[in-house]
Write a protein that binds this DNA or RNA. Structure first.
Length: 191
DNA sequence: TGCCCGATTAACT
DNA sequence: GTTAATCGGGCAA
């Protein structure tokens, strides 16, 4: 049986936690899958919501690690993050894509799609498939309805520039499982 | 109070 | 490749 990830897992640099999450399993009310794509956002990073200090929206990022930060994107979608490091450090990992492994029928119904590759291949899609909304902002990641299982076995991890941002675009803080068919976008092959 | 714009997605041409 | 949808956050005035 895979080991459960607890809050202690997140009490490290976001740049250590983010690649360590690749291959782990995320479940929400029993629905979810294997993490194949994430991005790291550090509080000293101009692209991070926490960069300019605490606000009502990003308050969870300034709290203790191991909790969910959920925000609305483009007024339409929800995006899920895992808070990392120490309380007040305000760093988080954006969950960008899953390889669906559990609750496929529910995901298909919520997304109105049958193609497994399109169910969770993007941050907004993940939240729609798992039915995560702003109502879940601030929930602990090691307590229901969340569940996180450590990866088992080896994983080939690749890194590259983050997607959809306009600041610090060159930072290679997007991490993914090499050659996964469930990425939101392919990683540029190593030269 | 007003204005700009975004850690996106899907449907276009 | 381009663009509309859609709205709350953050900052200037």
């Amino acid at each position: 049986m895979p080991k459960r990830l607890t809050k202690a897992f997140f009490r490290r640099s976001v740049h250590e936690v983010a690649p360590d999450l690749i291959g782990a399993t995320l479940l929400f009310n029993g629905v979810g899958g294997r993490l194949v794509e994430v991005e790291a956002y550090h509080h000293t990073d101009p692209a991070a919501h926490s960069f300019r200090g605490p606000t009502a929206r990003n308050a969870v990022m300034f709290g203790p690690p191991g909790y969910a930060y959920v925000y609305r994107s483009y007024g339409i979608h929800w995006c899920l993050n895992f808070v990392c490091e120490a309380e007040g450090s305000a760093s988080a990992v954006l969950i960008r894509a899953l390889e669906p492994t559990a609750g496929l029928p529910r995901m298909r119904r919520r997304r109105g799609l049958s193609d497994a590759r399109l169910l969770c291949s993007g941050p907004g899609r993940v939240c729609e498939a798992l039915e995560i909304t702003g109502a879940h902002n601030g929930l602990a990641l090691d307590e229901l309805p969340f569940a996180l299982l450590a990866r088992s076995g080896e994983v080939d991890i690749v890194a590259g520039p983050r997607i959809g941002i306009t600041k610090a675009v060159e930072k290679p803080w997007r991490y993914g499982q090499k050659d996964s068919r469930f990425l939101s976008k392919p990683f540029k092959p190593a030269t």
